[in-house]
């Protein structure tokens, strides 16, 4: 099993920390993991993205240009990464601020209205965990128990009181994700 994921959005949306939680969850299941962030000008306010790979084997390149899953959280990232999803792969996006929704027919497309939902939950910091929950609903590559362990590892101890809210957000993500396109293409 190898799952190659790009998570892309604005700096501040929790893109990098979502990737980190996913990587930690993988470690809890004895998987090999890599977490390769964009760094530099991006982290100072522009776009941010991270490539996360979880695998049962030694990971070759942490830098890749074709993904099993793209999690896309703004228009710039949609423009850049929609075309990099492998045929038959998964594109998950939040439509908040998206003016040009995905158009490819050979991939599976899912929608999670995480920005809207996090506002309804009364705490916008739950945004990235709702997205993570949506992703894990589509591809349950790590189980919930290990995600919670991963959360504990990657959140500083002083913020551990936020754990129940994060868990609630993940579960909310499970519930609200919608498949809007299914493709018959076989993953190559």
């Amino acid at each position: 099993m190898t799952e190659e994921i790009i998570i892309a959005g604005f700096g501040g949306q929790g893109v990098l920390s979502m990737g980190k939680i996913l990587a930690y969850s993988g470690i809890m299941q004895d998987q090999e993991v890599s977490w390769m962030p964009s760094y530099g000008p991006e982290m100072r306010g522009g776009t941010a993205n991270v490539t996360v790979i979880l695998s049962s084997e030694r990971i070759s390149s942490p830098v890749i240009n074709r993904f099993d899953t793209a999690i896309i959280l703004n228009q710039q990232s949609m423009d850049k990464f929609e075309k990099m999803v492998k045929p038959g792969g998964v594109l998950l996006y939040d439509n908040n601020g998206i003016t040009h929704p995905p158009t490819r027919k050979d991939i599976n497309i899912y929608l999670v209205e995480a920005a809207k939902e996090s506002a309804l939950m009364g705490s916008t910091i739950t945004f990235n965990m709702i997205v993570l929950g949506a992703y894990l609903q589509i591809k349950p590559i790590v189980n919930m128990e290990n995600v919670i362990k991963g959360l504990k590892k990657s959140i500083p101890e002083r913020h551990h009181k936020m754990l129940p809210l994060n868990e609630q957000a993940i579960l909310r993500g499970h519930e609200i994700v919608k498949q809007i396109q299914e493709t018959k293409s076989i993953l190559v």
């Binding site: 890599s34 390769m36 962030p37 990971i59 942490p62």
Partner: peptide
């Protein structure tokens, strides 16, 4: 190099 410096692995 910057890639190995910035990336996280086990």
């Amino acid at each position: 190099d910057g890639a190995i410096g910035q990336m996280m692995e086990k």
